[in-house]
Design a protein around this nucleic acid. Structure first.
Length: 497
RNA sequence: GACCCCAUCGUCUAAUGGUCAGGACACAAGACUUUCAAUCUUGAAAUGAGGGUUCGAUUCCCUCUGGGGUCACCA
């Protein structure tokens, strides 16, 4: 038997990083066993449906490299894959439940329900939520409501006693007292199903073998198990995935509950935010796979192909976890370091252009090898490269261009020689420039070491306390611009005499 | 509050009924060094508490504590 799994988001907004991780695990498992992965849109809550949400899911998922074999866009044998388009199917089976006395009509209005809840709470039965009064309506009472044309919902008749076992792949059997489980609404008064009914019907008819979902569904799982039983359908394997908590550990990961980490980083939640912040999809997905699951062999960095080979849902750690954002930064940095010079330049381009910079790829590619070890995210490059793209006068003093081993006169001498050297350097490449400048430095410092001079020269060329190294910067800036900066530095030095 | 889930360094995690409880991030120190990084070396750092079972428990059981989830005509 082949496995079939589904990722079933509600189009109520963006793709949350927690959902993305669930999707990732779902997808990895399907791929590991060579089964199918399905995308299903759970849009039965009309009020919460957000325009464009499905589009964002698709693009976020696609960016992460997650694909699906069946879904609203690609079709498939058991569609439609959008729940509102399956309304008739739900109604058909809801009726079946009604006729076979597994469900009953509830005529209570929202106001009445609120009152009932209050009373139950007073009697310390708050967890029931509903007192089942419509379950026990006489034929007469029912008739009266029907003729009055009262609206109704359908509720499932939970067994009044006994226990229900929910088998969970990563936690084992979980048992619930049936008497503590309420008669949930399964069909709303507008004729659309609630999640509970839709889940059971869809996952049955779509042939889903493993139901992956968050732990928040454990408490209603006994309802689902009883629904499967009522229909006489086989139970899928339930896999309740652990939640991702805020970095502080307080509550589910959400911007509303926590906006910043302890180290002052912004808490990112939406997948698109990670892309905008300059994280690479390979790194993000690698990072996500390391939360709640581990590759083994003490390896932190791996490709999805490698992970899929070893992945199993049963190996997932049941404990909830906090988002280790710092580790993502480190991992992303590792991925950046592994990129080729031009590859990184191309990846950086859109981010630099976003900042208003005009990017010359070959020039940028001189810099990317030395840049790659300095940035964790693609956006980190923007401030580091400002000197390359923003032409503004040096804001430094003559003192900044001197050092203990390089007094004013020596600096003047060295910079003059450097100017001559740069203007004639042939070929204009890393090796020549490096060798030439080292020679000049060694000849002019009091300790005969190039270091002090090279440091001042880098400052003169970039005007930045922190920047990529000197030789590469000269290459990227080009002859012209480099000479201009040297002239500027010489002027500053002259002014000090 | 009721029900349910969970519990290893600060964080993400590995491990077995029996080695000094392993790795990674972060942190600290050192090396290297043209800034900042990167890299290398070293270091500090954990089985929540109390009971059992056992020759022996981090591992199995119970209680407590702590954290989380659910208690909608939302998913």
């Amino acid at each position: 038997m082949t496995v079939r799994l589904r990722f079933a988001p509600s189009p109520t907004g963006y793709l949350h990083i927690g959902s993305a991780r669930s999707a990732l695990f779902t997808w990895m498992y399907a791929r590991h066993y060579g089964g199918q992965c399905i995308l299903r849109i759970e849009d039965t809550d009309l009020k919460r449906t957000v325009e464009g949400a499905v589009e964002e899911f698709r693009s976020s998922l696609g960016w992460m490299g997650i694909d699906w074999d069946e879904g609203p866009d690609v079709g498939g044998p058991v569609g439609p894959y959008v729940q509102t388009q399956r309304a008739e199917l739900y109604q058909e089976w809801a009726n079946w439940l009604l006729e076979n006395e597994f469900a009953y009509k509830c005529y209570c209005t929202p106001d009445e329900l609120a009152e009932i809840r209050l009373t139950l709470q007073k009697n310390k039965q708050g967890q029931l939520g509903y007192d089942r009064r419509c379950r026990y309506l006489t034929a007469d009472e029912r008739e009266r409501r029907e003729t009055a044309g009262k609206g109704y919902t359908l509720r499932f008749k939970m067994p009044l006693d006994g226990t229900t076992i929910v088998p969970d792949l990563i936690r084992g059997d979980i048992s619930f007292e049936n008497s503590l489980v309420t008669d949930h609404v399964i069909l709303k008064s507008n004729g659309l199903p609630t999640y509970h009914l839709a889940h059971v019907i869809d996952d049955h008819f779509m042939g889903i073998t493993h139901v992956t979902r968050g732990v928040e569904w454990i408490s209603t799982a006994p309802l689902h198990v009883n629904l499967f039983e009522a229909f006489g359908w086989d139970l899928p394997v339930y896999v309740h995935l652990p939640l991702i908590l805020n970095p502080s550990g307080k509550g589910k990961l959400s911007k509303r509950t926590q906006a910043f980490t302890d180290s002052g980083q912004q808490v990112l939640v939406r997948v698109e935010e990670f892309r905008d912040a300059g994280y690479l999809p390979e790194a993000l997905v690698n990072f996500l796979a390391n939360i709640g699951w581990s590759f083994g062999d003490d390896r932190e960095k791996f490709t999805m192909d490698e992970a899929i080979e070893r992945f199993d849902l049963a190996d997932i750690n049941p404990a909830e976890t906090k988002m280790p954002y710092e580790k993502l930064d480190w991992l992303n940095g590792q991925y950046i370091q592994d990129m080729g010079a031009m590859e990184l330049a191309e990846a950086l381009k859109p981010y630099l252009e976003e900042a208003g910079y005009e990017v010359d790829l070959p020039a940028l590619a001189y810099l990317t090898p030395s840049l790659s070890v300095r940035i964790k995210k693609l956006t980190d490059a923007t401030p580091l490269l400002a000197y390359l793209y923003v032409d503004k006068p040096l804001e430094i003093s003559a003192e900044d261009l001197t050092a203990k081993q390089l007094d004013l006169a020596a600096a003047e001498r060295a910079f003059t020689q450097a100017r001559e050297f740069i203007s004639a350097a042939e070929p204009f490449d890393l090796e020549t420039i490096g060798a030439g400048l080292i020679k000049i430095g060694e000849a002019n410092t009091s300790n005969g070491k190039a270091g002090p001079f090279l440091g001042r020269m880098r400052l003169a060329m970039t005007g930045q306390k922190v920047s990529p190294p000197l030789y590469e910067s000269i290459l990227a800036m080009g002859h012209q611009r480099s000479l201009e900066k040297l002239d500027e530095a010489l002027t500053i030095l002259d002014g000090a005499f």
